[in-house]
Design a protein around this nucleic acid. Sequence first.
DNA 1: CGGAGAGGAATTGTCTACAATCCTGTCAAC
DNA 2: GTTGACAGGATTGTAGACAATTCCTCTCCG
Lengths: 219, 219
Amino acid sequence: MTSTQTDPRLALVEQVRTAILRGEFAPRQRLIETELCERFGTSRFVARAALQELSAQGLVEFQRNRGARVRDISLDEAIEITEVRKLLEGLEAARAAERITRPEAAALRATLKDMRAAVNSAEMLRYSELNARLHAAIRDIAAHETSARLLQQLRDQTVRHRFSLSLVPGRPIVSLPQHEAIVAAVIARDPVAAERAMHEHLQSVIDAFKTLRGVARQP
Amino acid sequence: MTSTQTDPRLALVEQVRTAILRGEFAPRQRLIETELCERFGTSRFVARAALQELSAQGLVEFQRNRGARVRDISLDEAIEITEVRKLLEGLEAARAAERITRPEAAALRATLKDMRAAVNSAEMLRYSELNARLHAAIRDIAAHETSARLLQQLRDQTVRHRFSLSLVPGRPIVSLPQHEAIVAAVIARDPVAAERAMHEHLQSVIDAFKTLRGVARQP
DNA sequence: CGGAGAGGAATTGTCTACAATCCTGTCAAC
DNA sequence: GTTGACAGGATTGTAGACAATTCCTCTCCG
């Protein structure tokens, strides 16, 4: 009977987060409590609690007496975040290599195959979706709750910059072989190689960000 | 005239966090809202907001309709957390080695000297205080906001286990030379050595935790 | 003697109303 | 024409009251 009884606060947190990640709320846009109430059909009390939660997750920032706005993550900050992601995802890749089972290996191979197909047919959106799925699969295999929790936050915060990266032409061509290397090492149960491959992958993301920064500084 | 106007919510967050870290609130102890109001002289509204904030920081957990309690971090979880700390503090050590200035180097040496003195006179409490100061100094030199923020959370969560570790006899004798190695590498502006020294230090903490776990399992 | 259920106390979850603060646009003075 | 003050509106911050849920205890029946 008790159908999970979802917490309305958590439900709203999820909705607002999704809206921010989709870009429906732009960076630095003010999130006015009454507007949120109207849009999502909740009370101000719940809206407020949800904003505080999102603030703790780093997606929203509060200014005293001036309310909440979508936090604008600078490119410099995105680089910092990716530096940390590099380490944490490296840890996960290594652990995944130690723990992977046969069916999990099959699933990784399947996702990778789909990624190749997406690149060949130039389906950017599908590629980035599969990209997310691959990293999620590795996360699940690693079963490292602490890093999983932190990574969730970090990935959310950089979503905007990752999107602008994906628009750089030829980017998938670079990252696909990196993903192949990661999967190969994990399936081979080689933690050291898996960590190294993941490091190389995210280092190339960092380098791409730095290039973007260089471009932005000389318009 | 505007004298900072501290946010009462943040003030309460700080007070409750301190109380938890000091052990005045024990793990799994329930944090009843009205009691917090009485103790800290605030309204229930503010108390509630503070608890949500602490929940997001991982120091407190909520159960629907059953309120908040101090989160009990298991030894296994402490090990996971330390694995992540190892990576992040390694990153900070490396960056500190790249950025350190003369006066900062002098401060590190001074702290280290005090640590030696504390070990010689067997002042455990002072030693762990200096330990914290040393890590904080490296964090400031590194100037890596993202990792600093995450580390703050992670250190808070493991405070209880770190305390029980400090009671292990001979523990400072092991960790002092590790700290010496870290400081030496940072001052020598050798990022690779600094990261490695920090990794070794925190790996020994992880090993100590695992020993503790082994002991606990065979009573 | 033990377990199920009802009832009451305690606690949390939510809402509404009010106070404090900030932003905006207007008007007057320099 | 610019600058400053001031008023009005909009928005957030806080408090208190009420509703809903849980937990504990005590009774009653098997």
